[in-house]
Amino acid sequence: MTALELLLKRCSNPNLTEPAPSGLVLENILSAAMAVPDHGGLSPFAIKVVRAEGLQGLTDAFVQATKSTTDDAFKIEKAAKMAFRAPMIIVVSTQYQQHPKVPQHEQLITAGCALQAMQMACVAQGYQAMWRTGDIATHPIVKEALGVTEHNEIAGFLYVGSSSRDIHEKKRKGFEAIVSYWE
């Protein structure tokens, strides 16, 4: 697969199982995050790799956060399963820095680019990944459990593993409806 094919055929795969990447493959994934566009070279994000018993700790935070907002047994049960959708979750959070030329929104975009780069690095090396957020990403209990300070944000949870089921290539929308040229 060429680099262009990787970009044009990218699909999120929620069907993830063991094994998760490790060793040099994981190092490549994490290194991809460090190669993203980063105005000012701030590296305005933190990465936390969650696996093994860490998945249970993340589950505990998800359940506690859900229970703080609802007593719906279905939603609580769903929260208890979320972290086990994959054998590894890579959490990217912002580490906002004051900078006269790099506003916070650019720093958030850099964190998002890190997630995208890591997802692509997973696929390029034969693994799969799915980027998720949702209400749980903004919940103070989850942020605190992950060590994300109040003024920072969880940019996303990258669920990583091996594909347990092939997915069909999705039909892409054409770019024509959203592109204009100023010539």
Rank of each mutant, 00 (worst) to 15 (best):
M1L: 07
M1Q: 07
L7I: 04
N15L: 06
T17G: 04
E18M: 09
S22G: 09
G23P: 11
L26G: 06
E27D: 08
E27Y: 03
N28C: 07
I29N: 03
I29C: 06
A32Q: 10
M34E: 14
M34V: 09
A35Y: 14
V36A: 11
H39L: 09
G40S: 08
G41P: 10
L42A: 04
S43H: 14
S43I: 13
S43N: 14
S43P: 06
A46N: 15
K48L: 01
E53K: 10
G57K: 15
G57A: 13
L58G: 12
L58P: 14
T59G: 05
D60T: 15
D60L: 14
F62N: 14
Q64F: 10
S68M: 09
S68T: 10
S68L: 10
D71W: 11
A73E: 15
F74V: 15
I76R: 11
E77H: 11
E77S: 12
K78S: 09
K78C: 08
A79V: 12
A80F: 05
F84W: 13
I89S: 02
I89R: 00
I90S: 00
I90D: 02
V91Y: 07
V91T: 09
V92W: 05
S93A: 13
S93M: 11
S93K: 14
Q95E: 06
Q97R: 08
Q98L: 02
Q98R: 06
Q98K: 04
H99I: 03
E106M: 13
E106R: 07
T110K: 04
A117G: 04
A121I: 12
C122I: 04
V123G: 01
A124C: 13
Q125V: 12
Q128C: 12
A129M: 06
T133D: 06
G134L: 15
G134H: 15
D135E: 14
D135V: 11
D135T: 10
H139G: 09
I141E: 14
K143M: 13
G147S: 07
G147D: 08
V148W: 04
T149N: 08
E150W: 00
H151A: 08
N152R: 06
E153L: 09
Y159E: 03
Y159G: 01
V160T: 06
V160G: 00
G161M: 02
S163H: 03
S163T: 14
S164P: 05
S164T: 09
I167L: 08
I167K: 10
K171G: 00
K171C: 01
R172W: 00
F175R: 01
E176R: 05
E176F: 02
I178L: 00
V179P: 01
V179E: 02
